[in-house]
Amino acid sequence: MHIAEGYLPPVHAAAWGVASAPFVVHGVRALTREVRANPESTLLLGASGAFTFVLSALKLPSVTGSCSHPTGTGLGAILFRPPIMAVLGTITLLFQALLLAHGGLTTLGANAFSMAIVGPWAGYGTYLLFRRFGAPLMVGVFFGAFVADLSTYCVTSVQLALAFPDPGSGVAGSLAKFGGIFAVTQIPLAVSEGLLTVLVMRLLTQSSKGELLRLGVLARPQAAERREEAAA
């Protein structure tokens, strides 16, 4: 759920833009360094961004019977790391605002903060935590995608609650109101996105092992590393 154009009051829109800026600037620096060191990675990063965009065009069957689309932030963060996702996610949000009338430009900062920053960092952190404790890849992937999706919507609820406090119970009541509405749809959707991401990752480990090794998602077997070192 993107916050629609003009939905946030001007001060809130500007404040979320300012909050997002350091993360996006950090991501831009990381991306610029990467492209300057390896010019051919421009194409790979462009393809990654395009993949993130089309992932949000997938219609996901929801447990409630309706349809929604995955945020793609969990899979993106696991594949490309959160700093790069901050940039790719922001460009994707810009494209969605201008090509699909989905989201907006005055709300770009708020949407970037939830979808391109908090979602990827929370999802990637969860994924790393599970992997560090020895969980299998697919368990880490499921919880990474689940947490990324859910945290995105939690932050969106906070953003909406701060912008529109409840007349009776203030920000806390508004948070309960927006959070309650999202919880009905988003908890099942977060589970759905986790499952879909596992299925996608399972197919990728079969069909695109080379790319996953290059992206560092799969560890290179030690024997192969030794052979490469010996050859070098």
Binding site: T32, V35, T42, L43, L45, G46, G49, V87, L88, I91
Partner: peptide, 11 residues
């Protein structure tokens, strides 16, 4: 930055 624009163009 030009690299960001290039990535966006490829996207």
């Amino acid at each position: 930055p030009a690299p960001v624009v290039d990535v966006a163009l490829v996207m």
